[in-house]
């Protein structure tokens, strides 16, 4: 059975692209979220094997969402999607419990490598 993924990004563009990359590699994108609050809600209802999480999102940011998710599920497999120059935020996300990160602009091979690492 293929792994299920929740894609969180406030830009439809990014969500579509990440979903496509993952779907083409055989993953099952079971949901998308466009804010941190939504990410937390959908994580709880969908229980995906993997989450891709944008750092900067409206209402609740990605880092706060990681914290919320890890509060109930410390084993949650969350992959941060960051932009160049967000070093400090990436480190904060790692401390909050994110398992890995990829940096925009995305190279599909890098994204898939990171996904494989996170899923072990």
């Amino acid at each position: 059975m293929s792994h299920t993924v929740l894609v969180c990004d406030d830009a439809i563009f990014m969500r579509t692209m990440i979903s496509d990359i993952l779907a083409q590699a055989g993953f099952d994108v079971v949901g998308e979220a466009e804010s941190g609050t939504q990410a937390v809600e959908k994580y709880r209802s969908l229980k995906p094997d993997l989450v891709t999480m944008d750092i900067v999102m409206p209402d609740m940011g990605g880092i706060e969402a990681v914290r919320e998710i890890c509060k109930t599920d410390p084993e949650a497999k969350i992959l941060m999607c960051s932009a160049m120059g967000q070093q400090a935020l990436v480190v904060e996300a790692i401390q909050a419990g994110a398992k890995d990160f990829v940096v925009k602009p995305f190279q599909p091979s890098r994204v898939l490598e990171a996904v494989q690492r996170v899923l072990g």
Binding site: D10, A11, F13, M14, M17, D54, V56, M57, P58, A83, M84, G85, K104, P105, F106
Partner: peptide
């Protein structure tokens, strides 16, 4: 805050599309 998020989003999309001019300016 809203401005920052919008510009940040454009930057990410531009970089992914390979539009360095857009990404540079947004950055």
């Amino acid at each position: 805050g809203g401005l920052f998020r919008s510009i940040h989003t454009i930057k990410g999309m531009g970089a992914t599309m390979g539009f360095t001019g857009v990404a540079e300016l947004a950055h």
